[in-house]
Simulated assay, not measured.
Amino acid sequence: MKNRGFLKLASAVTVMTLGGVGYAAHRRSRNPYYQGPVSDHFDGVRFFSPGQPQDKDVAELARWQLAGGREAWPARVPSPFPQDTPPERVEGLRVVHIGHASLLIQVAGRNILIDPVYAKRASPVGFAGPKRANPPGIAFAALPPIDAVLVTHNHYDHLDGPILARLWAEHAPTFVAPLGNDAILRSYDATIPVETRDWGGSVDLGAEITVHLVPAYHWSARGVNDRRMALWCAFVLTTPAGVLYHVGDTGYGDGAIFRAVRERFGGPRLATLPIGAYEPRWFMQAQHVNPEEAVRIFRDVGAAQALGHHWGTFRLTNEGAEAPAEALGTALGEAGVPAERFLALRPGQVWEG
């Protein structure tokens, strides 16, 4: 009975954090976040990635949870970089890793946060779920004036509701998110205005910066009954400093969505790509790339530079804390790509280009 209770809790937290099962979500036949026309990636209730596998079942989740094979993580994974104190404005391009998938991009005099998460746990509950292994690379109080906040999707390791409400109260930025996520943000503060767009949509951020929402191979959920009821995306920013491509979470699939970015926007000056939360592959492959696949994306889009995120802060899957960085080094060597062209960022680390 004790093991069953643990599995039930672990399953619920996994489903809501980044998981991989849709058995409970299919009980709901109405979408509480978004009501819109049917499209090639929305069936009237749920979003989906065309041609890609969607949901795993509870038996597959149990197989993963009970199989073991998780590499040990230390309680702390300290960064060799101190917490950064960013300048108020940057006319060129400066990127700081806050931790996991959270980045501050300073470009053309604008300050843009992507998926800012400051929570101690990437979880719907405060007493369980993945716990932060290092402090944020920028203290919240040290943030410069924030002009825009971009949210790729609603998983708890990407959408930190309380911190988004605090950002609105203290900075009043423009919020940009894919369809349905406005309802989620407003559940934390009803006054938050959110620019929501479908894949292919765009938002003018001023200073000759436009953010474009493009597809990713992923999914969404905040609870056990709302799977795929809010859209997910990647972002392309066209800026005076060049094209920037950011992926929060994605599988590789057939690679078509990445080649499409290059065809539409040209090769990015910078691609920020996930490199962690990928084991076991049989479970995670459809939703999270591994470092080898991240290198493939880097080459598909023709980026001049890549920065790796989504690793080393929250223990989400089976690989060890340092495994993504090590595997990235191996993948770059096998692809003949110089290591300095694709860096595995650590909290507080700054890249300027």
Rank of each mutant, 00 (worst) to 15 (best):
F81E: 15
V95G: 12
A128I: 09
I98N: 02
P32M: 09
Y188Q: 11
A24I: 04
H41T: 01
H153K: 12
G248T: 10
V301T: 07
D182G: 15
P130T: 13
Y278N: 04
P178Q: 10
V149D: 10
G19P: 06
L7H: 02
Q349T: 03
A256T: 08
R197V: 15
L270G: 01
G129P: 13
R166H: 07
D115Q: 00
T17M: 02
A304M: 03
H155P: 03
Y33N: 00
A277S: 15
L159N: 04
T317G: 05
A344R: 09
L231Y: 10
A169K: 09
A294K: 06
I112M: 02
G333N: 14
A142S: 05
V247Q: 00
P37Y: 01
L159G: 09
F127T: 11
N290W: 09
L307W: 00
R4D: 14
P135R: 15
P173Y: 03
R346A: 01
I192A: 03
G255V: 09
P178G: 05
E322G: 02
R186S: 04
T272W: 05
G308I: 00
R299W: 01
V211L: 05
T17Y: 10
A67N: 01
R341T: 03
D189Q: 06
V15H: 08
G353F: 12
V58I: 15
V301H: 01
L167E: 10
P53T: 03
R28V: 10
R166P: 09
P87V: 09
M1E: 11
E263K: 12
T191K: 15
Y245W: 10
I209P: 05
E334H: 13
N111F: 06
L104A: 11
V90W: 02
R281C: 07
W199S: 07
K56C: 13
Y188D: 10
A325K: 00
I192M: 06
R296H: 12
C233L: 12
R89T: 07
A108L: 11
I163K: 14
F48N: 08
L159V: 02
A277K: 12
A142R: 11
W232N: 09
